[in-house]
C-alpha cells in the first residue's frame, strides 16, 4: 500500500466508520462506569463538520492568509502578559473579535487553528482537542451572535459573551473530570464542587475577557473591519471585454461569491 492508494481511501469514508465504531466503544465503556473516552470522542467528531465545510468551498489566498494571521497572533498574544496574572491573556478576546468581524466559520477556524498551532510550540497533549473545541466554539458563537448585528457588536453585549466564555472555556477544559465525577457519584453537588475548585482560574479568564472587550473591543473591531475591506476588495485589472477580470466585491467572509 503506498501513499497514493492511501489517498484513494478518501478521508471521509475512513473517518465515518471509525467515528461510529468509537462512539459504540465509548458508549459501552460508559455503561461500565468509565466516562473517559466518550468526551474526547465527541469533541473530535464535533470538529469534522467544521473542517469539511471549510474544505467544500474554494478559498482565496487572502482568506487563508487572514485566518492564518489571526490564529498566529492569537497564539502568541499571551507572551506580553506572561508577567501579569496567570490566565489573564487576550487569546479568547482575539478569537471572539475574529468571529465577530469575519463571521462564525472563520471564527471557529481561528480559534481551532490558534489552539493547534500554539500547542505545536508549547507541547501537544490530551488537552489539545479540548482547547481547539473551546476556542473554536468561542469564535463560532461570537460570529453567530454579532457578525451580522451592529447592535451586538457594541461593548456591553460582547462583554457579556466574553464573560460567559471565560467560564465556559474552563468548564469545557475540565469536562472529562467533571463527567467522571458525575458517573462516579451521580450527584450534582460533587460536580459543582469539582467546578468550584477551579473557579479562580475561570474568574481571571472572565475578568480578562471583560477588560479586553470593554477597553479594546470597539477599536479592534474597527481595525479588523478595515482589513476585512482591504482584503475583501480583491481588485484586479479590469478589461472592458473580459468578465473574468471583474473585481470581486464584498467581504472575505460574508459568503463571498464563489468564483468557479
Amino acid at each position: 500500500m503506498n501513499s497514493k492508494q492511501l489517498r484513494l481511501l478518501s478521508a471521509k469514508w475512513v473517518i465515518i466508520p471509525i467515528g461510529i465504531a468509537y462512539i459504540g466503544l465509548a458508549w459501552l465503556a460508559l455503561q461500565r462506569g468509565n466516562s473517559l473516552l466518550i468526551g474526547i470522542v465527541l469533541v473530535l467528531l464535533s470538529m469534522i463538520p467544521f473542517v469539511l465545510r471549510f474544505e467544500r468551498r474554494e478559498r482565496k489566498a487572502r482568506e487563508l492568509m487572514l485566518i492564518a494571521v489571526m490564529a498566529a497572533v492569537a497564539s502568541i498574544s499571551r507572551i506580553p502578559f506572561a508577567a501579569l496574572l496567570p490566565n489573564f491573556t487576550p487569546v479568547t478576546f482575539v478569537v471572539i473579535i475574529s468571529g465577530v468581524v469575519f463571521g462564525a466559520e472563520a471564527g471557529w477556524m481561528v480559534g481551532a487553528a490558534g489552539a493547534l498551532v500554539s500547542n505545536m510550540f508549547l507541547g501537544q497533549g490530551p488537552w489539545t482537542p479540548w482547547q481547539m473545541f473551546a476556542w473554536g466554539m468561542a469564535g463560532y458563537t461570537a460570529g453567530l451572535f454579532a457578525h451580522r448585528s451592529t447592535w451586538r457588536q457594541r461593548r456591553v453585549p460582547l462583554a457579556i459573551l466574553g464573560v460567559i466564555w471565560g467560564f465556559l472555556h474552563g468548564w469545557i477544559m475540565n469536562l472529562t473530570l467533571a463527567l467522571d465525577q458525575w458517573v462516579q457519584t451521580h450527584s450534582w453537588k460533587a460536580v459543582a464542587a469539582k467546578y468550584a475548585l477551579s473557579l479562580p482560574f475561570e474568574l481571571t479568564h472572565a475578568a480578562a475577557n471583560l477588560f479586553f472587550i470593554i477597553v479594546f473591543g470597539p477599536s479592534w473591531i474597527r481595525l479588523l473591519e478595515r482589513y476585512r475591506r482591504k482584503y475583501g476588495t480583491l481588485e484586479r485589472l479590469e478589461y472592458p471585454d473580459d468578465a473574468a477580470y471583474k473585481p470581486v466585491e464584498g467581504g472575505v467572509s460574508r459568503e463571498a461569491s464563489t468564483v468557479k
Binding site: 481588485e235 484586479r236 485589472l237 479590469e238 478589461y239 473585481p247
Partner: peptide, 22 residues
C-alpha cells in the same frame, strides 16, 4: 504579472508570446 496586477482601468494591450495576457 496577471495574478497581482493592480485594479484600475487599462487601455492598450500586453502580449505574451503574441497572445494577449488575459
Amino acid at each position: 504579472k496577471r495574478e497581482v496586477s493592480p485594479g484600475g482601468r487599462m487601455s492598450g494591450s500586453i502580449l505574451l508570446n503574441d497572445s494577449p495576457l488575459h
